[in-house]
């Protein structure tokens, strides 16, 4: 117990890194996911094939492998990326692919009549997407997006392998010094649980507010 308390400041600090990684990757992932979903749905030539390949590759390979590739790949071409940016790139590419699928599903679930109604007002395809279809699909996708974020929060632990001192790596570092894996991992688990639960709580409230009318 004493050890848990002693190591708490360091673990809390690392938790901030974890939350920060998840938030930054989620923000980028949302943009990637939405854009790639739109590109695929609009069947933009070439690009939509690229996006399909991207989603297929990401969903068909382990996140851990993706993290290693992003970290060790680009330097082969003389492009150096620090561990934290590498982690964010890998995580956002990963989460972007999953969100792309969620958004595509959500957009396709908006009834055909909505697009037609927008057309009859004289809107272009993209205006209709922006004003009518996407806002509705975002509301539909919200629960999935929330779950993806919670998954991401926990997946950040994988970037410990590329020297990012987030919660798991910090735990390992403390265990190397103190030889108390049970205490430290338990503390880390509690922190992960706390972060996920806090977010679920926020998510539920947002969902209730936003999805009233869909």
């Amino acid at each position: 117990m004493e050890l848990a308390l002693q190591s708490l400041p360091a673990l809390l600090q690392a938790s901030l890194v974890t939350v920060g990684l998840a938030a930054a990757s989620m923000a980028a992932g949302l943009v990637i996911g939405l854009l790639s979903a739109l590109i695929r749905i609009a069947r933009i030539p070439v690009l939509s094939h690229l996006m399909r390949a991207y989603v297929s590759i990401i969903r068909g390979t382990p996140l851990l492998v993706q993290i290693y590739l992003v970290y060790y790949g680009p330097p082969q071409f003389g492009w150096h990326l620090e561990p934290v940016p590498s982690a964010i790139v890998a995580l956002s590419l990963n989460v972007g692919a999953y969100l792309s699928e969620s958004f595509r599903g959500a957009i396709e679930s908006v009834s055909k009549g909505q697009m037609e109604a927008a057309y009859t007002l004289g809107m272009t395809y993209w205006t209709a997407m922006r004003r009518i279809i996407v806002p509705q699909s975002l509301r539909t996708a919200l629960p999935t997006v929330g779950n993806t974020y919670i998954g991401l929060l926990k997946d950040t632990s994988l970037v410990s392998v590329i020297t990012v001192t987030e919660l798991l790596r910090q735990s390992n570092v403390i265990i190397a010094r103190t030889w108390k894996p049970l205490t430290i991992y338990m503390t880390a688990a509690v922190l992960y649980w706390f972060m996920s639960t806090m977010f679920s709580f926020v998510q539920e409230r947002v969902e209730r507010r936003v999805s009233r009318h869909v």
């Binding site: 390992n172 570092v173 403390i174 265990i175 190397a176 010094r177």
Partner: peptide, 9 residues
């Protein structure tokens, strides 16, 4: 960084 006393935090 996890190999005391050679290198650790």
């Amino acid at each position: 960084g996890t190999y005391p006393p050679f290198n650790f935090v």
